[in-house]
């Protein structure tokens, strides 16, 4: 479980940067081009998955421990709720209360880019959590042989 060969590791290290950059692009430009929070988050999870495949199971958990992942997940959910509730300051639930700006600009459309960022964080981190749960928590031995006890 030490990961793959040197070639795979080197290429994975370089490519993961671009994958995460691409996911940030997909999230941030979600109101101008196709994309948005959901696909951006899944691409983020896939980038971390590539690291996990190439370097073994331990490296992603060292970079993003369980506690911090759970904090980020709750941060995404609460941020989306906060945007929804802040609509009350100007009127009603989910009101797009920020200034709208000009179309085709990056900073436009009020709360939409913010919502996209929070949804992207939430989807990405929760899918990362389930992938780690699928690969790390258990080794899935058949019932005959007992797994070695780990703390």
């Amino acid at each position: 479980m030490k990961g793959m060969s040197l070639i795979v590791r080197t290429i994975a290290r370089v490519v993961t940067t671009f994958i995460i950059l691409y996911s940030a692009y997909i999230v941030v430009y979600g109101h101008i081009t196709p994309g948005g929070g959901f696909p951006g988050g899944v691409i983020l999870a896939l980038g971390i998955m590539l690291l996990m495949l190439a370097f073994g199971k331990d490296l992603p958990l060292r970079k993003l421990p369980e506690g911090r992942a759970s904090v980020l997940d709750c941060l995404g959910a609460l941020g989306f709720w906060a945007i929804a509730l802040l609509g009350f300051t100007a009127g009603y639930f989910f009101l797009n209360f920020l200034g709208k700006g000009e179309p085709f600009r990056l900073v436009s459309a009020g709360t939409m880019p913010l919502s996209n960022i929070f949804i992207g964080i939430k989807v990405g981190v929760s899918l990362f959590a389930v992938l780690t749960a699928l690969s790390v928590y258990r080794r899935f031995y058949p019932p005959g042989e007992e797994p070695p006890e780990e703390d």
Binding site: G30, H31, I32, T33, P34, G36, F80, W81, A84, F94, N96, K100, G101, E102, P103, F104, S108, A109, G110, T111, M112, S115, N116, I119
Partner: peptide, 21 residues
């Protein structure tokens, strides 16, 4: 109303944000 060019996102996050929540 929303100044968003991608209408899927504007439906998803503005007109029908309850569904997204």
């Amino acid at each position: 109303k929303t100044k968003a060019v991608n209408f899927v996102t504007s439906v998803l996050l503005d007109f029908r944000a309850y569904d997204t929540l």
